[in-house]
Nucleic acid binder design. Structure first.
Lengths: 193, 193
DNA sequence: CTAGGGTGTTACCGGTCTGTAACTTCTAGA
DNA sequence: TCTAGAAGTTACAGACCGGTAACACCCTAG
């Protein structure tokens, strides 16, 4: 029978969660499978019984990250049902919160930079997941009644992506500090057109 | 006497140039010192006679990159002497050209993402070089007579940084394709204030 | 011509990496 | 209680990494 406290998590899930955290903090090439399994309280053999390779583990981590992002979008809808403009502002607020709490950027973007081999299996996944997020933001802008929805969504995307990487290179006092002001200004400007 | 054709470049410079190219293409952790020296037509010992360590080589590469960027700024001033607004538009054009030619992003930003250790010696250098570039762009915006010069410069910075990383994750058909339109629109909008 | 510094060559050190084999131990379900 | 599969353990292979030692070479300045 299952432990009522649900404390005993399956090794596969422990590995996945630990790997996500460590990849996020130290980068993919900055952490080895041994370190992951040790931190997850298990061993290398168990990892390779559940994942074909380290690359496979990386891909599963990225999918899990996308899944978390999906949960965010559902939260926006739940908190502001039907009010697409409020959801857009919630997106900005969430992005800003992640910015100042986190310090490290987007896992997919970081992975894309680290895995420079153009035929790396993770790149396909990154591209399609990022594309899905873009479509989602475009849809939100459109449903919020904004005329040039694609342009606003793409501009917001680039601003956030830029803020994340700027945070890591210039630091928190750099341009990324103005993210909310820029994003809100853009939304206002696009709504006025 | 020196070779008149200047074909015989010093090993140090060959290593530096080769390392810049390979770090740019494959990332810092993605290329070893052996591969660099081989591609530079020399050997590991010579590398370590000129550079204290791989980290030291990385830092010198970043400084060289900053130097190339400085040359760009001088070109702007030379092509549009005194006309700061024209120089700002030239900056946008140059950024867009780099975007579609290159495929890989900014060396400093990529390095900052790859070298996640907060105490890595290269991070200090990255921060100060990036800060200098930011100051330069702010100064250009201010001299071009734009009121909220800092905000415009920071927005343009984030847009470019975002476009570079988006190019690597989503691809060339993604949001980065609209960079020029966004940047020019921003400049127009800020000038009208 | 000669001395010396820059360079090339080879071999090596200790460490880390991904991935596997063989075997033991644990645990859940019938 | 018995059994099958999941998980843990140990050891290892093979490759690559950054960095160093010792020595041979070449080329140029004097």
């Amino acid at each position: 029978m299952e432990d009522g406290t649900a404390e005993r998590i399956r090794p596969r899930d422990r590995i996945l969660e630990t790997a996500r955290d460590m990849f996020h903090k130290h980068g993919i090439k900055g952490v080895g499978v041994d370190a992951i399994t040790e931190a997850a309280g298990t061993n290398k053999m168990t990892l390779y019984r559940h994942f074909e390779s380290k690359d496979d583990l990386v891909i599963e981590c990225l999918r899990a990250t996308a899944c978390s992002a999906n949960a965010m979008w559902q939260k926006f809808e739940a908190e502001h049902p039907g009010d697409k403009l409020a959801q857009l502002h919630a997106w900005v607020r969430m992005a800003a919160d992640c910015l100042m709490m986190d310090g490290r950027g987007c896992d997919m973007a970081n992975a894309a930079i680290e895995l420079s081999e153009t035929d790396h299996p993770a790149r396909r996944v990154i591209k399609e997941l990022k594309q899905a997020q873009r479509d989602r933001l475009v849809g939100l802008c459109r449903d919020a009644g904004i005329g040039q929805a694609e342009l606003l969504a793409d501009t917001l995307s680039l601003l956030l992506e830029g803020a994340r990487v700027s945070l890591q290179s210039v630091g928190a006092e750099g341009p990324s500090a103005q993210f909310v002001r820029m994003a809100e200004g853009l939304i206002t400007s696009f709504r006025a057109r």
